[in-house]
Amino acid sequence: MKHPLKLLILALLLLLTACALAQPQVLRLATTTSTDNSGLLEAILPDFEKRYNAQVDVIAVGTGQALSLGEAGDVDIILVHALSREDEFVANQHGTERFDVMYNDFVLVGPEDDPAGVNGMLLAQDALAAIAASEATFASRGDDSGTHTKERGLWKVAGLNADPQGDWYKSLGQGMGDTLRFADETQAYTLTDRGTFLALQDGFSNLVVLVGGGNIAENQDPALLNPYGVIPINPDKGDINLDLAQDFVEWLTSVDTQAAIEEFGVETFGQPLFYPDSQAWNDR
């Protein structure tokens, strides 16, 4: 060990090994933009990272892409909101099991002067039918997201084509924030999750909630409920950190974390953005 270069290499190797040991485990989480943009994950994830010496890489995309990331085995776990597609995902063995996490609700927003006259309607399907009948501009996410999936379902319930045709129907293929921005600029109606709307509404000059009320208790349309589920990815896809994913599920559905979810946003918006709904929470 007289050679200084050898010494240096040894020191470097030691350093690398030490780094690798201290390196936290990584959990790759694909989720929808609503959970990330609202700031919820930022608020609650540090607790998980500290408890499990883990690092959570959040990939915030539309529900469609989150599901396809899971299907390809590119992430360990997904947190999304499109119930029917989630069940299908598990049925097709892409994920191990779906767990209820939380819910919030959708609201229909639009211009204050409300050309289609939907203000005060209790059911979203009636409002959509009125919008279609008056051909008032409607902005659709059009991106296969959870919100888009919900919107298509509502059109069908209203007795219309799930993808309405016509100049008044604008399929944007953009995220919730961009779609709201578009609706605000062009005096259009759109369907949004309440959390994103609350978080962004200060930037809008024209948009108001027309169907869904001022908070989730006032929302009279059960079809507007927006449940979120978490699904660990099937380890058969290879290189999936199932143990950590299961730890994450346990932590996310625990009473403590659920309480933190309920608390989130109350200070800023006067109401929670998400309502806890896990088995453990409901059984407590």
């Binding site: 539309g62 469609g64 059009g142 296969d144 604008k170 399929s171 293929g173 953009q174």
Partner: peptide, 28 residues
């Protein structure tokens, strides 16, 4: 073009914004 065009189907959707959209949808 995404920002100022809005990626509206049939009106302002061009190849690049369509690519972003389909990727987001998971239609790789």
């Amino acid at each position: 073009v995404m920002l100022v065009g809005g990626n509206i189907a049939g009106e302002t959707r061009v190849l690049t914004t369509a690519i972003v959209l389909e990727t987001r949808k998971g239609n790789i």
